[in-house]
Nucleic acid binder design. Structure first.
Lengths: 111, 111
DNA sequence: ATTACTAGTTTCCACAAAGTAACTACATTT
DNA sequence: AAATGTAGTTACTTTGTGGAAACTAGTAAT
């Protein structure tokens, strides 16, 4: 999300949502985790996403310094993606979200 | 987000994003925190939102058992919103997101 | 009769995000 | 010459989300 109103809001949660608060970024960042992955691997692993959207999201994550992109001068082209320090700092947070989701889904199933 | 593909995905992060991963819900939940607030207070406190969107988001949060809505038979009408256990469990997670955002914003300013 | 209050609701429109399907570039392989 | 591989890109279309502005209901106050 590039919405300036969000990114320059006084509320820090609003600014955070402006960087990572859309449907794809938490999924992508969580999936990369501590690995180094290539574009095709991400394409295969991220559920439901199209290459067009994946490319856009990766570009924005790189611009926001959450993701690092290394490209090698080869043919066919080889590009590798991995999380920066900023991105890695999100991992425990996203792990908590996954645990939250599983915990309350389990609660529902016990009814 | 009511997208069935997200809510029934095998990936728990995708399901979590299906419930809370849009631009308004983290902001609203974080803002309510441990308080009990009325609709008008939320309208005044949530930055950038319109009443139409606020109403929609509150409705979905109630449907997903993240928010509790109590309405009193009064005129003018009085409705109070507060987080459920499921919602309260999100607070430390969102606090971490706010801290993450502030930490890395501070890093940028030091350059 | 009109205004005020609260918590919405509605309709139409605008915009952002996503989807589709074809296309790109270049070295290598067949 | 054609096919292959990778990592995208593009143009158009569709869908989802949000915005604007007016409206609603009922009791109480003016």
């Amino acid at each position: 999300m590039r919405d300036k109103r969000f990114r320059s809001s006084e509320c820090p949660m609003t600014r955070a949502v402006g960087q990572i608060g859309n449907k794809w970024k938490p999924i992508i960042v969580n999936l990369i985790s501590k690995r180094t992955l290539r574009f095709g691997q991400l394409d295969a692993l991220v559920p439901l996403v199209t290459r067009k959207v994946l490319t856009e999201q990766l570009k924005e994550l790189v611009e926001d310094d959450i993701l690092k992109r290394v490209s090698y001068s080869e043919t066919p082209p080889r590009v590798e993606y991995s999380l920066t320090d900023k991105g890695l700092a999100l991992l425990p947070i996203f792990k908590s979200i996954v645990e939250w989701n599983l915990a309350f889904e389990k609660k529902i199933k016990k009814r």
